[in-house]
Amino acid sequence: MKPVSVSNGNLLGHWRRWAPVVVLLALCILISLFNGNFLTFGNFIRLLNSAAIPIVLCMGATFIILMGSIDLSIEGVVALTAVIVSLLVLNDISPYALSLWAVPIAVAVGGMMGLLNGVLHIKLKTPSFMTTLGVGFAGVGVATTILGGTTVRISDPTFRFLSLGRVLEIPMAVWIAAVAVAVAYVIQERTRLGRWLYAIGTDEMTARHAGIPIERTRILIFGIAGLFYGLGGVLAAAQFGQGHALISQGRLFTTITAVVVGGTALSGGVGSVINSVIGVFIVVVLANGLVLMGVEPYVQQGVQGLLIIAAVALALDRSRLDVVK
């Protein structure tokens, strides 16, 4: 947990910092009481596996939310990169068979989409939620147009290994997610970019007066976030073995829920990528628990919606209250 809370020191601030962990533990205990299948090795692996892609996406989204902005283009970027990567590996539509070389290309496309977000947002001076809403829809549009509504089937075993292969009994996707977390953590803790991120999110005017290159940092962070979404798209394509724009459905929702539930404040400046990992596990464990209890899958999105409201309401830092639009 990252001690960058403004209201640090008092009891409430302390509770807020550890609340996500407490919630996660309580959930695990509660569900295992109701269902014996929860605490099995098989289910544990299943949990890790379903957390992998959301974690990768959250790494990007956390950075953006730490700046006090928001990225609604996640689904668009994931859809586009998933479709591109599945057209570049061995498949039933296009003649390319680049195998693993397709991965950096798709991730780079994600980065370009992120940069596009950042450049439009900064240069046109439009709020990030509007800019990313537009770019995100455009991304889904491009992805659907490329395929004309059909689905690509991937027949490249090396590529599918990225998600399905197992090393030390743990799926490859989980290892990749772990590396993504490590990279994100290093960016957050050990680079100037990471420090500037917090400065911008806490007080952009002061950060500007302190000489931080706000515009460049913002554009770069949107680009980096795009890289993570690109990787998420690649993993999604590898997991399902096909490329389709619908592969990204519901991802935006899960990602924002996880970031917010993990304790990263939407107002910016407070939180950490580690918080978001905890957040993803809260969302995934809850979903897993609901499935084990036999709740209809379509209820999940409703539960996540309520979680967002509850988490944002509880994480509210009242010292920063002003007009809320």
Binding site: I70, V299, Q300, Q301, G305, I308, I309, L316, V324
Partner: peptide
């Protein structure tokens, strides 16, 4: 709850989608 409207309505839309289903 003093939640920015875009996130509050995004969250509500999750509940509403479930209700529609």
């Amino acid at each position: 709850f003093r939640i920015p409207s875009f996130i509050a309505t995004l969250a509500v839309s999750g509940v509403v989608i479930s209700a529609g289903n």
